[in-house]
């Protein structure tokens, strides 16, 4: 797939995803060792994006499973299409078949609703399976994932074992709102995505907002970087930096000053308590000229 770390890094960059070498190294290892990649980090640093870009870079299909509380096997793996089966039975009744034959009829792939996990396993082409926000799922689901992630196969009682043709690239993301069991953690390669460094964030801003003046971009990024060091409920993410930069561009200002920041603070900070905390300190947080 990829011969070296550098190649992977370049491919990702070609898809507009800038990474540090160490991120590329870890992703490369996950691909090479064929192990699931568990990406953790604060919201909005590009965890989901990484999976999407990875699919793009490897020319594979992206299959996404969004986790939520109460997600179960029926929603994640497969389910029998009962309605269709019932209809089939009704039709069969008129033809008077015995039970064994009828069973042969209704428990066939035709009546199987493939959910993301089964789809990823049975896919003919290479896929990237993104299991998004695993921390939102229940513990039962987590232990159920274990089987799939370690053997890349699943057993459907009526049909037998489905084994994947290609081992899919699995990316799990988490905001660590819940602790995982050790078993799941041990099966994964760990990647902690943190907020980007000053230079990296500056690059991203330039990439996403072509035409922004370099000195404004620098001011914006350095203010956001300082802001992240404050004790906040939720620190501004990259997406918020971009939004903020866009809105400042829209307002047509060339520099950021106290007034502008105070006026647009709600784009960066999403909690009222955070805004209150920062509002009066803005001038002391601004980069020196």
């Amino acid at each position: 797939m990829f011969g070296s770390v550098e190649e992977l890094q370049k491919k990702l960059a070609a898809c507009d995803y800038l990474t540090d070498r160490h991120v590329a190294t870890i992703v490369y290892l996950a691909l090479k060792l064929q192990k699931p990649l568990l990406v953790e980090g604060p919201a909005g640093v590009g965890k989901t994006e990484l999976a999407k870009v990875l699919a793009q870079a490897t020319n594979s299909r992206l299959i996404r499973l969004q986790c939520y509380e109460g997600l179960d096997e029926a929603k994640a793996l497969y389910e029998w299409n009962y309605q269709k089966q019932l209809l089939r039975l009704h039709v069969a009744q008129t033809q008077s078949k015995d039970w064994e034959e009828a069973k042969q009829d209704i428990f066939t792939p035709e009546f199987l609703l493939r959910r993301p996990l089964l789809e990823a396993l049975s896919s003919e082409e290479p896929v990237v399976l993104l299991i998004d926000e695993v921390d939102k799922s229940d513990e039962e689901f987590e232990s159920f994932l274990l089987e799939i992630l370690s053997d890349y196969q699943v057993t459907i009682p009526e049909l037998g074992t489905v084994r994947s043709n290609h081992i899919p690239v699995v990316v799990l993301t988490s905001n660590s709102s819940r602790e995982f069991g050790d078993a799941l953690k041990r099966r994964c390669i760990h990647l902690y995505l943190d907020y980007p460094t000053f230079e990296r964030e500056l690059d991203i801003i330039h990439l996403k907002i072509p035409g922004i003046k370099d000195c404004l971009a620098q001011q914006i990024v350095s203010f956001v970087q300082v802001l992240r060091k404050q004790r906040l409920k939720k620190a501004p993410s990259i997406a918020e930096t971009i939004d903020w930069a866009r809105s400042i561009m829209t307002l047509g200002s060339k520099v950021i000053d106290e007034e502008i920041v105070q006026g647009t603070l709600s784009i960066l900070l999403k909690y009222q308590s955070d805004i209150d905390k920062v509002y009066n300190k803005v001038s002391s947080l601004l980069p020196e000229k």
């Binding site: 770390v5 160490h22 190294t25 490369y28 290892l29 060792l33 050790d182 990647l191």
Partner: peptide, 28 residues
């Protein structure tokens, strides 16, 4: 895993470090 990972990336210092880190530690 750490052994396999280091075999993949070699012993160049940075890569070696990240190979060990991503396989051996589970928490930030």
């Amino acid at each position: 895993d750490a052994l396999r990972a280091t075999a993949e990336v070699g012993f160049q210092f940075e890569d070696f470090y990240h190979a060990l880190a991503c396989t051996m530690i589970c928490e930030k």
